[in-house]
Write a protein that binds this DNA or RNA. Sequence first.
DNA 1: ACATATGTTAGCATCATACTAATACCCTTT
DNA 2: AAAGGGTATTAGTATGATGCTAACATATGT
Lengths: 137, 137
Amino acid sequence: MSADANITKKERDCIVSIWNGFQNGFPVRVSTLAESMKIRPPTVEELLDRLEGKGLIQRNRGMVVLSEAGRTVYRRIMMDHRALETFLVQCGDDADSACKMVSNFDYLIDERTALLVLKRIGNPALCPHGRQIVEAI
Amino acid sequence: MSADANITKKERDCIVSIWNGFQNGFPVRVSTLAESMKIRPPTVEELLDRLEGKGLIQRNRGMVVLSEAGRTVYRRIMMDHRALETFLVQCGDDADSACKMVSNFDYLIDERTALLVLKRIGNPALCPHGRQIVEAI
DNA sequence: ACATATGTTAGCATCATACTAATACCCTTT
DNA sequence: AAAGGGTATTAGTATGATGCTAACATATGT
C-alpha cells in the first residue's frame, strides 16, 4: 500500500494546493489553484475532474474543498512528507531542499513505512517548518 | 538535481533489468527483457527507443547494453536505492518490503541527499541484500 | 442592464505506456 | 541452398495524464 488512493504527482500537488488555499476558512477557487499551481484554469478543471472521480474533492460553483477521503489522503501525504523531511534535516540537509526533494515522492510512501521512520527519528511532534507531523484536520 | 537523466519509473526498471540481464557476461536480449519486465516485446522496443534517444543504452541486433551514461545512471539509482533501503531496514522494515518500497522513488532522489543519508546511517559498505552500496561497474 | 471576473466546455496536442498483427531477420538443420 | 523456427522490429491502435487556446456561460458589482 502507498499513501495511495492511487494518485499522480500532479493530483498530489493539487490536493496540497486545495488544502493550503483553504487555510483562510474559505474554499479555494479554480483561478487561485491555477495560479498557485502555475497551470491554466482548464488544466485545473481536468485535474479536478479526476480528483472528483476518485471522490477526493467536492465542487460547488467554482469553489473546491477536500472531501473526507481527500482529507485522509492529505493527512497521509503530509505525515509521510514530514517524517522523511525531518529525517533528511537530521541528516544535515536544509529544510527547504529536504521539502522540495520529499515532495517528489511523499505520495508514494506507505503508512507503515512512514510510521517506522517516525519512530526511528524519535517521534517528533513537529517538522522542520514547525508544523504538526500528524495533523488533525 | 535528481538521479536524473530525467527518466520515468519504467525507464528506471528497464535500466535495472538490462543490468541484471547482463550479469552473466552476455548482453541481454529483447525477449528476456520482455519476460523479466512482464511486458510484450514491442513495448520493450518502445522503451529502448526512448532510452537510446537519451543515450543510455546501445543496441545491436537484438542485444542491449547500457552505455557509459547508462551505467552512471544505474550506479546512481543503486546507490540511492541501497542507502534508503538500508535506512528502512535499520528502522525495522524487512529487506524485501524496503526494497519494493524504495524502488518506487530511488530514481527521483539526488546524489547529495543519498550521500547525506549514507553518512547518517554510518556509511555501510553493503545493503541488506549484501550488495555493494557504491557499486564499481 | 452592462461590463468584468471567473468558471466551464470543446477541441487539440504531446508523451508515456501498452497491445496485436504483420513483417523482417537470423540461425540451424536438412 | 532452401526451409523452418525463433526472435526482433514496424505498423497501427488505444488509453491515461498533462497541458494548451478559444469559445461560451455564469456571476457579481456598479
